[in-house]
Design a protein around this nucleic acid. Structure first.
Length: 846
RNA sequence: GGGCGCGUAGCUCAGCGGAAGAGCAACGGCCUUACAAGCCGUCGGUCGCAGGUUCGAAUCCUGCCGCGCCCA
């Protein structure tokens, strides 16, 4: 035990010991019943860790440490999410390269020293290698931070969402979905981001207010003009029908007739459909392929032709469409060909004005428009071939199964289930899993080519299971040769990759090495806990439940613990752009890891929490107090080994242990229910009381100033209480708890058994009142001294206590301790009629 | 527009049917043989507003107001 205990350096010292001794190593011989397994969220490595990460990962670690102390074999791996757009963009900028999947792999490629102005095109395999190089460096820094933060992770069970095993598992699960008909390929209108040039899934959408303008435009009927209002006049060449509500009397006479479009003079039908809103615009809408999702619905349900004019690059088709037949119409289209949506709109408005078919003023309007969450241009809808996984969006039976899974799952806090159910109920299509990007897990299929070299989308070639992972852009399907790639009669690789969530949704399988090490998998799956943030319930949580449901017909885990966010002092979600970035490492260094963990532990499950340095200071104080209190108690001289509770003979000591037993019970129940905050609060509150009142009361007796029995009773109580307290604090304050435990106990506190409510049982029944009254009276004495501005050491001439007989009886049992602690000479105990405890302190100076 | 959560002391938050709580801050003290990075004490609240249920409401119900998140 050091002379002057300090918190400095504890992190490095103990992190090293834990690593050397394998304190958190998972015992893979343990059976599933003995295991507690955690589906750790793999942090995205292409950024930097944020205070919010420290916050939520600490919550998980507290639970993991608690379960370990309860005797579970904790499977607590760490993964890295290095698969997806953020990494791709970072690599492009960092090395000045871009992925060109048609290029062959160059094994000798080295990236330019400095990124040049022109990005160097490289093969997908080379690109992926660069991603791996760059993310490996980030991962090292992340691991160092997590170790310093005290996460009790078994680092030998790490994974990357882009590593070969993860790719194999992701492709295998996908191919098995394909085999069972749970995944399918389909040519369909797809939400498309023109900036990223990729399809976007429902889960990646967000509505944003977007400014547009109503344009009143004339279509020409046989008798009269029909006026529609549109915010997207540039889609007039893509118009396939005008549509009004069946009950709309204004348009009923027109149903079944045709009109001719302005500028292009294309004939389109006027149709009825209930999705048309009578009170919106003119009440009659033009249906284009495709302006929005309602257009898609009309196109499907009314069996309309596809006249798409917008390309995947967000520009209008360069060739004039065949359905525009009039000479003037074709001339006008040529003025728009190849223009961006924005430019096309300007030109078409000019043309409409010129032709007189634009009526009245253009009226500005702000309305919600769909965006890719990472994009900054409104999404277009294009037709393309994509892969989907059935998720209940088009199948009521699957949807009901998914809702049932949500009800089976135990949510912490419980109300988070609503988010899940809302999402499942609101699904309106299957899960689009193919993405037109480069860095990710390739869609593991090829297609046959016909004699003209056209893709035969129904002739899907899949790899053998033992060939996984594959990259169809470089690997060749069985029965074909390299020379047959992209030639008529040969094959072509699917150029796409899988949605990042299609891999992340398999983290339990990846961490547990499903299909690679099935022995391990059977010991950890289904897992116990998925900890995660509440904003990705619709993506990560839902998709993981879905994949597990489809592959294993089970929930992936029994519990989901949702953590809140960290808010800055303005009650806004903390973000880098706000200029209040705090680096986690800086915090850990400034306050100490235990102190930061203490702050994190104060954030209730699911509750957004303010970033609060004050709480970190309090945490540091608590850690310091634990050092000092431990040093003091051990310095007084406590018996070695297991505390001998038969020596606990004094009523005050028994009452103390009884109260601590209640704390153990409360903390245990709370942690069993994932409420680390309540557990910490109960422990902490007791601990301060223990230090400030109990320690002060028994100090003299423990020193041996009275008799031997009293001394031994105090020492045994102190030892027993300290041993319990150090363990109660261990999950939240792992470093300081390990330090003080090491002063007098064998082994790691983190491998010690969690305190049991029976271990503090004494031979005789405890009277809690003894502790309460003694504490009250010593408080009164201190108050009297403080009010008279006297030293706490000042002797008190006389003390008079009025109370009910039972309270006086209780006080009598601890009177020697009270007198010693308060330095009281004479005491008078008076039975009071009303039972109220009144303490009168005689003039201490007298 | 729908769903969920939250409005309690200057601040951060507990409490969720039986006398309004903690920590921080503020203020006043105390060198006390573990800790002055400590300790003791004091001050501080119409529990968002309005109704209702109840012997009793911060707590349950209804309606408003405000904030946040999720989804349209």
């Amino acid at each position: 035990m050091p002379e002057k205990p300090t918190l400095d350096g504890l992190e490095d010292r103990w992190a090293r010991v834990w690593e050397d001794e394998g304190t958190y190593a998972f015992d893979r011989t343990a059976t599933r019943e003995q295991v507690y397994s955690v589906d750790t969220p793999p942090p995205t490595v292409s950024g930097s860790l944020h205070v919010g990460h420290v916050f939520s990962y600490t919550h998980t670690d507290i639970v993991a440490r608690f379960q370990r102390m309860r005797g579970k074999h904790v499977f607590y791996p760490m993964g890295w999410d290095d698969n997806g757009l953020p990494t791709e963009r970072r690599v492009q900028n960092f090395y000045g390269v871009r992925c060109e999947p048609s290029l062959p792999y160059d094994p000798d490629f080295t990236p330019p020293e400095k990124p040049g102005k022109q990005q160097v095109p490289i093969s997908r395999k080379n690109f992926v290698e660069l991603c791996e190089t760059l993310t490996a460096e980030d991962e090292k820094a992340f691991e160092e931070l997590w170790r310093r933060n005290g996460l009790s992770v078994d680092w030998s069970h790490g994974y990357q969402t882009i590593d070969a095993r993860a790719r194999a598992i992701s492709q295998r699960a996908f191919l098995r979905n394909v085999e069972r008909g749970q995944a399918y390929v389909s040519m369909a209108p797809t939400l498309w981001d023109v900036t990223f040039r990729t399809a976007v899934a429902q889960a990646e959408l967000e509505d944003r207010e977007h400014t547009g303008a109503w344009h009143r435009v004339a279509y020409h009927g046989s008798d009269a003009d029909v006026f529609i209002e549109t915010t997207r006049p540039e889609l007039i060449p893509a118009c396939v029908a005008l549509i009004a509500h069946p009950d709309d009397e204004r348009y009923q006479p027109l149903f079944g007739t045709t009109v001719r479009s302005p500028l292009f003079d294309v004939e389109v039908p006027v149709l009825a459909h209930p999705a048309a809103e009578m009170d919106r615009g003119a009440g009659i809408a033009m249906c284009c392929t495709f302006g929005d999702l309602t257009d898609v619905q009309w196109w499907r349900e009314l069996d309309l032709p596809n006249r798409t004019v917008i390309n995947r690059d967000g520009r209008l088709l360069r060739e004039t469409p065949e359905w525009i037949t009039s000479e003037l119409g074709r001339q006008r289209y040529e003025e728009l060909a190849g223009a961006t949506v924005h430019t096309a709109k300007e030109r078409i408005v000019a043309l409409l004005t010129e032709s007189g078919e634009l009526v009245g003023d253009v009226r500005p309007v702000t309305r919600p428009v769909k965006f890719f969450e990472k994009g900054d241009k409104p999404l277009e809808i294009v037709s393309s071939r994509q892969w989907y996984i059935r998720n209940g969006g088009r199948d009521a039976a699957v949807r009901d199964e998914m809702i049932a899974r949500g009800q089976e799952l135990q949510w912490h806090p419980g109300y988070m289930r609503h988010r899940y159910e809302d999402w499942v109920r609101g699904l309106n299509g299957d899960w689009l899993v193919s993405r037109q990007r480069f860095f990710g897990v390739p869609v593991p299929v090829w297609y046959r080519l016909d004699a003209d070299g056209e893709v035969l989308p129904d002739e899907v070639l899949t790899p053998a299971d033992d060939a996984l992972p594959v990259d169809p852009s470089t690997d060749v399907p069985a029965g074909f040769t390299v020379e047959q790639r992209d030639v008529p009669g040969g094959f072509t690789g699917d150029p796409d990759i899988l949605d990042t969530w299609a891999t992340s949704s398999l983290t339990p399988q990846i961490a547990g090495l499903w299909s690679i090490d099935d022995d391990l998998f059977s010991r950890v799956f289904p897992m116990d806990l998925r900890p995660q943030a509440h904003d990705i319930i619709r993506t990560w949580l839902f998709s993981t439940v879905l994949r597990s449901h489809l592959e294993h017909d089970t929930l992936p885990w029994a519990h989901a613990a949702l953590s809140g966010w960290i808010l800055d002092p303005d009650r806004k979600k903390m973000s880098k752009s706000k200029g209040n970035v705090v680096t986690p490492m800086g915090l850990l260094e400034e306050y100490g890891s235990d102190a930061v963990r203490y702050w994190a532990a104060g954030g209730r499950p699911g509750v957004d929490t303010a970033f609060d340095r004050g709480q970190m200071k309090v945490g540091r104080r608590l850690a310091m107090k634990l050092l000092n209190a431990s040093k003091f108690i051990l310095g007084v001289g406590v018996p070695a080994g297991e505390p001998d509770l038969t020596a606990v003979s004094m009523p005050l000591d028994r009452a103390l242990l009884a109260r601590l037993t209640e704390v153990v019970e409360k903390a245990t129940t709370a942690l069993d229910g994932y409420d680390y905050a309540v557990a910490l609060e109960a422990t902490e509150q007791f601990f301060w009381f223990f230090c400030d009142d109990y320690l002060e009361l028994v100090k003299s007796r423990a020193y041996g100033e009275f008799d031997e029995a009293g001394r031994d009773s105090a020492r045994a109580t102190l030892a027993a209480a300290l041993r319990v307290l150090q363990r109660l604090f261990a999950p939240v304050l792992p470093f300081v708890a390990e330090e003080v435990w090491s002063w007098w106990q064998e082994g790691s506190v983190h491998r010690a058994p969690w305190p049991d409510i029976h271990e503090l049982a004494t031979s005789a029944e405890a009277d809690p009142q003894v502790l309460e009254v003694a504490s009250d009276v010593i408080g009164s004495i201190r108050r009297a001294k403080s009010e008279q501005k006297l030293s706490i050491r000042t002797e008190v001439e006389s003390l008079s206590v009025q109370a009910a007989p039972a309270a006086l009886e209780a006080l009598r049992a601890a009177l020697a301790d009270v007198r010693a602690a308060g330095r009281v000479r004479d005491v008078e105990l008076v039975v009071s009629a009303d039972g109220e405890l009144v303490t009168t302190v005689g003039d201490p100076t007298g």
